[in-house]
Amino acid sequence: MNNETTLLVIFVGITGLALVVQAIVMLVAFLTMRKTIVSLQSDVQELRTTAMPILSRTRETLEKVAPKIESVATDVADLAHLLKEQSVEFQAVAAEILERVHRQTSRVDNMFTGMVDGVEQASNMVVDSVAKPVRRITAMLTGAKAFFTVLATGRRPDQQAEIVADQDMFV
């Protein structure tokens, strides 16, 4: 046998051995996958048996509740529309009330100003009507006092004040 032939036989043997090892690895992978698939199928089946009743009850509940939810949504939309309309009406009424309050406040202000002006004018008239006679009486009393002072002392009141002031200067 030739050297090349020997090498060729060795390479063919190694290749055959590699194919057998690869086939064994593939067989082990296949068996592992099959075992995993069987396990997953049992898990999925178990999940289906527990989840399907829940899903069917959920579906039934949603079918029962869906019209009510739609009704509630419609009611909420109607309520929002009514609230919007009423807020517009409320704003209009509030504006009208504020306008009336403003007019009444202006009227009350004018009435109060007129009343205060009248009271001021009346008080000025009272002061004038009382003050003039009081000034006249005061002037008459001052004149009478001066008259009696002149009669009693023989001098005018101004001269007497000067004498007193002069006496105080010499101490």
Score class of each variant (00 low, 15 high):
95 A>H: 06
79 L>G: 03
59 R>E: 13
26 M>G: 08
38 V>K: 12
53 P>G: 12
106 S>H: 14
76 V>H: 04
41 Q>M: 06
148 F>M: 13
128 D>Q: 09
62 L>E: 10
36 T>M: 11
124 N>P: 01
134 V>E: 00
148 F>N: 14
5 T>R: 15
141 L>R: 03
32 T>L: 07
153 T>W: 14
44 V>G: 01
166 D>I: 00
56 S>V: 04
50 T>S: 13
71 S>D: 13
107 R>Y: 05
106 S>R: 15
74 T>D: 09
53 P>C: 14
132 K>N: 07
15 T>F: 15
25 V>F: 12
3 N>F: 02
96 E>P: 01
16 G>E: 02
28 V>E: 13
83 L>D: 07
128 D>Y: 10
71 S>F: 04
67 P>T: 05
90 F>E: 14
169 M>A: 11
169 M>R: 10
14 I>P: 00
138 T>L: 02
122 A>Y: 05
14 I>Q: 00
10 I>D: 01
97 I>E: 15
31 L>F: 09
155 R>I: 06
52 M>H: 06
103 R>G: 02
29 A>Q: 14
26 M>I: 12
5 T>E: 15
143 G>E: 13
160 Q>F: 05
165 A>F: 07
166 D>W: 04
21 V>A: 12
8 L>K: 14
1 M>K: 14
156 R>P: 05
44 V>Q: 04
116 V>Y: 08
82 L>N: 06
13 G>L: 14
17 L>E: 01
136 R>A: 02
56 S>W: 07
163 I>C: 11
21 V>Y: 13
34 R>H: 07
13 G>K: 03
126 V>C: 01
4 E>S: 07
47 L>I: 11
46 E>I: 00
106 S>P: 05
48 R>C: 08
159 Q>D: 10
73 A>N: 02
127 V>G: 01
145 K>L: 03
92 A>Y: 01
147 F>V: 06
84 K>A: 10
157 P>Q: 03
81 H>M: 12
122 A>Q: 04
140 M>R: 05
91 Q>D: 14
92 A>F: 05
55 L>I: 11
157 P>V: 10
12 V>P: 04
18 A>G: 08
71 S>H: 02
93 V>D: 11
109 D>Q: 11
148 F>R: 15
58 T>D: 06
90 F>A: 06
31 L>W: 11
167 Q>Y: 09
21 V>H: 10
109 D>E: 13
164 V>T: 14
73 A>K: 01
125 M>D: 12
115 M>E: 06
6 T>D: 14
95 A>M: 06
29 A>Y: 10
84 K>T: 13
38 V>M: 11
31 L>Q: 15
13 G>H: 02
44 V>C: 03
126 V>S: 01
171 V>E: 00
44 V>L: 12
26 M>T: 10
36 T>W: 12
93 V>K: 08
67 P>L: 00
169 M>G: 07
22 Q>A: 06
90 F>V: 03
139 A>F: 02
163 I>V: 12
97 I>N: 14
58 T>H: 08
5 T>A: 04
75 D>W: 06
89 E>L: 14
72 V>I: 10
8 L>S: 11
61 T>E: 04
147 F>E: 03
58 T>R: 03
102 H>S: 11
34 R>Y: 03
115 M>Q: 05
63 E>H: 07
106 S>I: 00
2 N>Y: 10
80 A>N: 09
74 T>M: 08
137 I>F: 01
52 M>Y: 11
14 I>G: 01
79 L>M: 05
147 F>C: 02
